[in-house]
């Protein structure tokens, strides 16, 4: 019995260890090859010769004009913050109203919002481009932020309204007896209690905004002065996809910071994901 159990544990650990290694190999290849010249990448993709290793390729990628790294990070970070501000800022009052009004109309309204979760954002981008054009927002950051926020609102609002339903109504009532208005109750009493679910929505929306490629590419346009991480990588890599001296350093620069953030915040990110799924 004991030997059987030890064997099982050993088998389990081996399987998991081999799989983990397989998951990490691409990262290893990317990091190692970011410091090597093309010839060496082709000859020995896995090894690294410290005599010839150099940071010049990373420096070249850093200075690339098609992918301005620092600006790319700034634009992507701006999108994360701005889209979350719009999506969360509008979803909180709407979810509050929907959760607290026991009328059929508001239940229908919730379903109307939830239906948006099943519309693939990048597929509806083509007609959205024409809506943005008619609003004069095509090719602008506000237009991009509005579109991306619109795709985040259904999920955000859905989890918020489910969360607010769990908060006791007596809180609102006590505050309203004390003479607080709707907005006051919402922002000073309900919103602070929503912190866990707001954090969940923020993290999930942030990942979506950070990694979105099609929306910035189509709405800002390939010739735009604004490049996100993803559109920048596309501009720098897609035409030189076999010039590995450019590909690996560019990819490394694009993923290093987000991986760092992930390693530091992994508990919150993965916890947020499962919290969002349980509520959804």
């Amino acid at each position: 019995m004991t030997s059987k159990r030890t064997f099982r544990t050993a088998a389990r650990v081996t399987v998991v260890a081999v799989l983990s290694a397989a998951m990490l190999v691409p990262m290893y290849i990317m990091v190692v090859n970011a410091f090597k010249p093309q010839q060496e990448i082709l000859l020995s993709p896995l090894g690294i010769d410290f005599a010839t290793a150099s940071t010049e390729y990373l420096e070249a990628a850093w200075q690339s004009t098609s992918f301005p790294v620092v600006e790319g990070y700034a634009v992507s970070l701006f999108l994360v913050l701005a889209c979350n501000a719009v999506a969360i800022g509008t979803a909180v009052p709407a979810a509050y109203a929907i959760a607290r009004t026991p009328k059929l109309l508001f239940r229908i309204l919730l379903m109307f919002f939830v239906a948006g979760m099943f519309v693939p954002a990048q597929i509806i981008l083509v007609p959205a481009v024409f809506v943005l054009k008619s609003l004069g927002l095509m090719g602008t950051l506000p237009g991009l932020v509005l579109f991306m926020s619109a795709t985040m609102i259904p999920f955000t609002l859905f989890v918020f309204s489910a969360y607010i339903r769990m908060l006791p109504r007596s809180l609102d009532e006590a505050a309203s007896i004390d003479g607080a208005g709707r907005q006051r109750i919402l922002w000073t009493i309900i919103f602070p209690l929503m912190r866990p679910i707001v954090a969940t929505a923020f993290i999930l929306n942030a990942l979506g905004a950070w990694n979105d490629f099609v929306s910035p590419q189509l709405i800002l346009g390939p010739g735009s002065e604004f490049r996100t991480i993803t559109t920048g990588v596309y501009a720098a890599v897609s035409t030189y996809s076999t010039n590995y001296e450019i590909v690996f350093p560019t990819l490394l620069l694009a993923v290093a910071p987000i991986l760092l953030i992930f390693v530091v915040m992994q508990r919150h990110i993965m916890g947020g994901l499962s919290a969002g799924a349980v509520k959804g």
Binding site: T90, P93, I98, T101, G116, I124, V131, A150, T151
Partner: peptide, 28 residues
């Protein structure tokens, strides 16, 4: 009146959602 005041709270979310997701579906 209470329901109407609550309805007002949904207007910003509705405006963004309808304007940039529902209307595009209609356009499509």
């Amino acid at each position: 009146a209470g329901a109407f005041a609550n309805g007002l709270l949904t207007v910003p979310a509705l405006a963004v959602y309808v304007g940039l997701l529902v209307v595009p579906v209609g356009f499509a």
